[in-house]
Design a protein around this nucleic acid. Structure first.
Lengths: 117, 117
DNA sequence: CTTCTAATACACTGATTCATGTAATAGACA
DNA sequence: TGTCTATTACATGAATCAGTGTATTAGAAG
């Protein structure tokens, strides 16, 4: 969890559009309450399948499937079929780390505003 | 930058909608290439005003002002007027930490996909 | 083969976002 | 005061996103 940057962010040249876009894309994964809850559920539960996750977040199967599909496409999740059930797991440690960091921030200070709008 | 969570994320109950929303709102701040570049510029430059930032990211003043306004409303930035110029600075260390973390992730591994779409 | 269930694919809709253009505000300076 | 500059406010339009409903696929079980 420690993070020694080779280059001090204060000293490197300004972020280019491409690099900033990649970074923003990474954060975008966690910029949705539904995805945050799903990813947290994936960290918490033991080898859940789609319907487990849908039940956990109390949402319709299609909505959950939509989000899981996106996360798979982005390489964040991986799937594994067992009979009729498809199980998901996180394969991108970046996302876990960032979510962990976010939970940490949220733990000891209440954010001023709830939503970003 | 170290982050010892009091409660292990694997053991806490599932994130509620409100808490997940707050967390997602935090990540949303960094989920835009423009905002990432602006925040990085704010970390890099010395007491920049709006037009400095607009020049740095090569965007129109209005677009930059829109984003800065949002960041101010969210409590991420603070402003200080000096004559005709309005200067901005980051007052929310969470965001700096997260951006730092993101830069770190981006440094030693190329993300698979560029955008989230 | 038939039927049932789990999950996904697809089209659709309402909401949101971002940059733009125009107009208005705030201060500097003559 | 009048004017210039820097910045913001507001409305507009294109693009994107999230969730819903319907239809379809993949496998299990009779």
């Amino acid at each position: 969890m420690t993070c020694p940057l080779k280059t001090d962010p204060e000293q490197r040249p300004l972020l280019g559009l491409a690099e900033a876009g990649e970074l923003a894309g990474l954060f975008e994964v966690l910029a949705s309450a539904t995805r945050v809850r799903l990813l947290h559920a994936l960290m918490t539960m033991d080898d859940p399948c789609m319907s487990d996750l849908a039940a956990a977040v109390e949402m319709k199967a299609q909505a959950v499937s939509n989000q899981l599909r996106k996360l798979v496409d982005l390489g964040v999740l991986d799937t594994c079929r067992h009979g009729n059930h498809i199980h998901y797991r996180i394969v991108e440690p970046c996302v876990t780390n960032l979510l962990h960091q976010g939970l940490c921030i949220n733990e000891d200070q209440v954010l001023r505003k709830v939503g970003y709008s």
